[in-house]
Computed example of a mutant assay.
Amino acid sequence: MDTFALIVTIGVALGFTYTNGFHDSANAIATSVSTRALTPRAALAMAAVMNLAGAFLGSGIAKTVSEGLIETPHGTKGMWILFAGLVGAIVWNLITWYYGLPSSSSHALFGGLVGAALAGGIGVIWSGVVEKIVIPMFLSPLVGLLVGYLVMCAIMWMFRKSNPHKAKRGFRIAQTVSAAGMALGHGLQDAQKTMGIVVMALVIADVEDAGDPIPIWVKIACAVMLSLGTYAGGWRIMRTLGRKIIELDPPQGFAAETTGAGVMFSAAFMFHAPISTTHVITSAIMGVGATKRVNAVRWGVAKNIILGWFITMPAAALVAAVSFWIVNLAFL
C-alpha cells in the first residue's frame, strides 16, 4: 500500500472536516446571532466547544458512512478514489460558501464518494444510498418544517398572556441553551461522517479491520478539526440563515434551534441516519416563520436554497469524477 496516498487522503479528510466546520457553523448559531442572544464571537466559541463534545457521543453514523454507501475499494487506486471523493466535497463546500448558499456538506461528501466510485469502477450500494441518504434528504426537511411550525405554535399559545418584552428577554437567554444543543447535534452528526471516511482509508491500507472500533486518535482529530473550522466562522452563510429567510425574534430562534437539535439527535440515536444539519435548521426556520404569516417567509430565497440542496450531490459527484480522472492520469 502506498503510504503517501494514505497520508494525503487522511489529510484531505481532515481538511474537509475543517471546511465543514466553517461552512456549517452558521447552522448552529445564525439564529442566536441574528436575534442578538449571543455575540458572533461568543456564539462561535460556544459552537466550537459543543461540536468537539458532540463528536464523542456515538459512532453509528460513522459506520453507516464507512460500510453502507460504496463497496470498500482496495489498493492504491481505492485510496485515490477516496481522495477524489473528498476533493469533490471540498470544492463544492467552497463554492457554496463563497455565494452564501447553505448547502449540505454531508450531501457534498456523499455525492463526492458516489461520483469517485463510479469514475473508478467501484460498486455503489444504491439501496444504501436510497435508504440512508436520499430518503432522509427528503424526510428530514419535512419533519423540520412541520415540527418547527408546531413548536412555534405551542410557544405562542403557552406565552399568549405574557408580556412580550419580558418573554423575548427570557427566550434570548434560553437561546444560549438551544444553540448549544444545535451545535452538539452538529458535532454528533458531522464529525462522525469524516470518521467513517478515515476508517475506510485505514481499512484499505490494512491498518484496521472492518468492524473494529474507531481509533481514539481518529475521533480526536476529526473533532478538533471540526471545532477549529467552526471557530473560523461562516459569516456569509450566517447572513442567509439569520436574516434573508425571515427576520427572526428570540422565541422564533429558540423554536427553530430546539427543533433542529431534536431532529438531529433523533436521527443519530434512533436510526443512525446521517442527515444534513443545513436541511434541518433551514426547514425549521421556514416552519417557524410560517406561523407569523405564510408570506413572512421569503420564499424566493427559500427556493434558491432548496435548489442548492438538489444540485449538491450531482455537482460534487461531477467534481469528484473529474478529480479521479486527473489523479488516474498522474499517479495510476
Rank of each mutant, 00 (worst) to 15 (best):
Leu6Ile: 00
Ile10Asp: 05
Ile10Phe: 12
Gly11Glu: 12
Val12Ala: 03
Val12His: 03
Phe16Ala: 06
Thr19Trp: 04
His23Glu: 10
Thr31Tyr: 03
Thr31Ala: 05
Ser32Ala: 03
Thr35Pro: 02
Ala37Glu: 13
Leu38Glu: 01
Leu44Gly: 01
Ala45Ser: 13
Met46Phe: 02
Ala47Gln: 07
Ala48Phe: 05
Val49Pro: 01
Leu52Lys: 14
Gly54Ile: 04
Leu57Asp: 13
Leu57Glu: 13
Ser59Ala: 12
Ser59Ile: 07
Gly60His: 04
Ala62Gly: 08
Lys63Leu: 11
Ser66Ala: 03
Ser66Val: 00
Glu67Asp: 15
Leu69Arg: 04
Thr72Gln: 15
Pro73Arg: 10
Trp80Ala: 01
Ile81Leu: 09
Ala84Arg: 11
Val87Asp: 01
Gly88Pro: 05
Ile90Arg: 04
Trp92Asp: 02
Leu94Thr: 03
Leu94Ser: 07
Tyr98Trp: 08
Gly100Ala: 01
Leu101Cys: 05
Ser106Lys: 00
Ala108Ser: 08
Phe110Ser: 09
Ala117Met: 15
Ala119His: 02
Ala119Phe: 00
Gly121His: 05
Gly123Arg: 13
Val124Met: 06
Trp126Ala: 12
Val129Gly: 09
Lys132Phe: 10
Val134Cys: 01
Phe138Met: 14
Ser140Gln: 11
Ser140Glu: 10
Leu150Val: 15
Cys153His: 12
Met156Ser: 13
Trp157Tyr: 08
Met158Gln: 12
Arg160Thr: 02
Ser162Phe: 08
Ser162Met: 11
Asn163Arg: 15
His165Val: 14
His165Gln: 15
His165Asn: 15
His165Trp: 14
Lys166Trp: 15
Lys166Pro: 11
Ala167Asp: 04
Lys168Val: 13
Lys168Thr: 14
Arg169Pro: 05
Gly170Asp: 03
Met182Leu: 10
Met182Trp: 06
Ala183Pro: 06
Gln189Phe: 04
Asp190Pro: 02
Lys193Val: 07
Thr194Ala: 11
Val199Cys: 14
Leu202Arg: 07
Glu208Tyr: 14
Asp209Trp: 14
Gly211Val: 08
Asp212Phe: 09
Pro215Glu: 06
Ile220Cys: 08
Ala221Val: 06
Met225Phe: 08
Met225Tyr: 06
Ser227Cys: 08
Gly229Trp: 01
Ala232Glu: 13
Met238Gly: 03
Met238Val: 11
Met238Thr: 10
Arg239Cys: 07
Gly242Lys: 02
Lys244His: 10
Pro250Leu: 01
Pro251Phe: 06
Gly253Ile: 00
Ala256Cys: 00
Glu257Cys: 09
Glu257Lys: 12
Thr259Tyr: 07
Ala261Gln: 09
Ser266Thr: 15
Ala268Phe: 00
Ala273Tyr: 11
Ala273Asp: 10
Ser276Leu: 04
Val280Tyr: 02
Thr282Ser: 03
Thr282Ala: 02
Ala284Arg: 12
Gly287Ser: 07
Ala290His: 14
Ala290Leu: 14
Lys292Val: 02
Arg293Ala: 14
Arg293Ser: 13
Val294Glu: 03
Asn295Gln: 15
Val297Cys: 10
Val297Leu: 09
Arg298Tyr: 08
Trp299Arg: 11
Ala302Tyr: 01
Lys303Asn: 02
Asn304Arg: 15
Ile306Lys: 03
Met313Gln: 04
Pro314Met: 00
Ala315Glu: 09
Ala315Leu: 06
Ala316Phe: 09
Ile326Lys: 07
Val327Leu: 15
Asn328His: 11
